[in-house]
Design a protein around this nucleic acid. Structure first.
Lengths: 249, 249
DNA sequence: GCGTTTGGTTGATCTTGATCAAAGTTGCCC
DNA sequence: GGGCAACTTTGATCAAGATCAACCAAACGC
């Protein structure tokens, strides 16, 4: 038997995985892991490396163990839009599909925990927990995608940047267990260009708006990637969202 | 036993449902339907009616039988963004959540087939097929959401309109069984304002771009809602997408 | 039939963010 | 330490789409 240890509700620390990763291990409070360990493996990538190209054959699914990966779609004339941002514990890949629909890129050094697709699919058949958990995660991702659509379609550049910073701030404080508030420090896992691709802006506009938020005292910068948010509520005021944040369960 | 009749792969015509609706019936090639019929019911809405308001308690899930519904998010200052467009066979509601995250509105006359949430959730526990099918549908919706993000983030107004028309054209021809090509006729299920909310534009810009496409001969109009696409490939050229359309399986 | 409402079109002007261009930082390799 | 490359900032100008405003047309109520 292995050392299973719940961190936050949906996350489970399992066996050799160094960090919570909830894709498959979650709720597997039985010895399913024994089987898993013989079919899962790790892959490491450096910042900037491509994990898979859109259109490639892909024979694995997996989840992010540490670092950040992004899904991007590129139009034929080169315009790029990020369509997914994968933080630790997020799932990558689509069971039942053999080619990648998007480029997957490591935006920081990245560690993934992968499963051969065939075996994963077999596991889904055999263990209802797995597809139920996957459904839950996919619904969360869909919610995030919809929030993202509001950002892309209706927010100003300044609101977009503020929203992105708020997303990172929330994810950061989630990891350490608390709720986002007061003074928060984040290390941006994205270049200005990647932020632009996330937000549907140009990198120049991203840079200018970050400078503007700095001049307005909403954020402080130490270097280019290290951001201090002295007052999280002040940042939220800049996002254009309702004050309550709109959480549902 | 009832008359089960496969139309296209994932769709099944079942019992008293007038049209294919795949949320629950799919793959239920057994007598599960007997049970279902005792717990499902229909709801009808007129164009413009609200199905649920964001924040409301919701005690049902369901799928669209006929007509079109939309999910919209409204910012506190009134800016609105559509985040979901529900066509026949699409699923509405999130199992495991008791309040609606978005406004659901009938954009045309609408018929829905609903299940009490508690019973639906019980069914998901008991029948793995259901949650597997739901996962598949949710993944499709996530893909659509990502395509939509590219539209919102990176396309010009003209490309946005063309993309939306292409989406309707594809859905239309899917229903009649074929592949989209050549001459296609569609009835827009959305007002100019709803199209604007879909695309992150103003209604004036929508109107202007539709006029521009008409003047360019890409589309013909009969009245305000009836659109003729004389050459589907010509329309596709205007969407900014790669010619192959980017389909994966 | 006529005023009203709802949804749509068209025009003039303004604003935001894109584009083009140059220069500033930081880190790294030799 | 110097030079290069990657990333970022800042500036000047431009253009797409928003905004404000007027008008149009079909449907509806009475």
């Amino acid at each position: 038997m292995m050392n299973l240890q719940s961190l936050t509700t949906p996350h489970v620390q399992c066996g050799s995985c160094p960090i919570r990763h909830r894709a498959v291990c979650a709720r597997c409070d039985s010895d399913e892991l024994e089987v898993l360990d013989s079919i899962k493996y790790y892959r490491k990538f450096e910042a900037g490396q491509t994990v898979v190209w859109a259109g490639d054959q892909v024979d694995f699914v997996g989840s992010v163990v540490s670092g950040v990966a992004s899904l991007t779609q590129t139009m034929e004339d080169g315009r790029r839009q990020m369509v997914g941002l994968l933080l630790p514990s997020d799932f990558v890949g689509r069971p039942g599909r053999s080619t990648a629909a998007y480029d997957v890129t490591a935006t920081t050094d990245l560690m993934m925990c992968c499963f051969r697709k065939g075996q994963f699919e077999k596991m889904m058949q055999e263990t209802p927990h797995v597809s139920q958990r996957l459904l839950e995660m996919t619904l969360d991702e869909l919610d995030a995608a919809r929030e993202w659509m509001v950002i892309l379609g209706r927010k100003t550049a300044r609101e977009k940047i503020s929203s992105l910073l708020a997303i990172f701030a929330r994810r950061n404080t989630l990891l350490t267990g608390g709720e986002a508030s007061g003074r928060i420090v984040i290390d941006l896992p994205l270049t200005r260009e990647a932020m632009a691709d996330y937000l549907g802006l140009t990198l120049e506009t991203v840079s200018r708006q970050i400078s503007a938020l700095r001049k307005a005292g909403v954020i402080e910068l130490q270097g280019k990637r290290h951001v201090i948010i002295p007052d999280f509520d002040r940042l939220l005021d800049e996002t254009g969202d309702d004050s309550d944040g709109g959480f549902y369960d």
